[in-house]
């Protein structure tokens, strides 16, 4: 219950911030935490699942070490972000919304990260990469793949 110490028991209006805290802690919403949340807020677990599945931010499965967010906003779209996404998907062998089996990469799509001026943009964890082309993206991906390999050896 350490996680909820800043909140009042039974306060349903703080549900979303509490879920955000849980996700910050674990990277996703584990089932047992959702049950605990239900008890703490005096809400049915179904209600919590309902909120979790409504908002794009919440995830029910753990994420990869590198989360690649591909912007699919309008500005990025007209600058070819769909191709960027396709290339990423084929290079990593996973689809948008999936995590690789070795838990290294996750691909997500977002609608605009607010850096439209350097479209097309992707963010790897919190680092932005803008003005991407098929070639610069391939280079970027192989850099990360190499990094992952090196980490595995250690």
């Amino acid at each position: 219950m350490e996680l909820f110490k800043n909140y009042k028991e039974g306060d349903a209006s703080s549900l979303i911030p509490m879920m955000q805290d849980v996700q910050d802690q674990y990277g996703y919403l584990p089932e047992e935490e959702m049950v605990k949340l239900a008890r703490f807020t005096h809400l049915p677990v179904a209600r919590i699942y309902g909120v979790a599945s409504f908002y794009n931010q919440f995830r029910l499965r753990p994420l990869g070490k590198y989360v690649i967010r591909v912007c699919r906003g309008t500005a990025c779209h007209v600058k070819g972000s769909l191709d960027i996404l396709r290339i990423l998907e084929s290079e990593l062998g996973i689809k948008a919304g999936e995590t690789s089996k070795d838990l290294n990469f996750t691909i997500e799509t977002v609608a605009c990260i607010g850096a439209c001026s350097i479209a097309p943009v992707i963010a790897i964890n919190d680092e932005f990469h803008g003005g991407l082309t098929a070639k610069s993206l391939s280079k970027l991906v192989s850099r990360y793949k190499k990094m992952v390999q090196k980490e595995r050896k250690q």
Partner: peptide, 8 residues
């Protein structure tokens, strides 16, 4: 909330 994709 600035949801319009392409607005900042």
């Amino acid at each position: 909330d600035e949801g319009d994709p392409g607005a900042f």
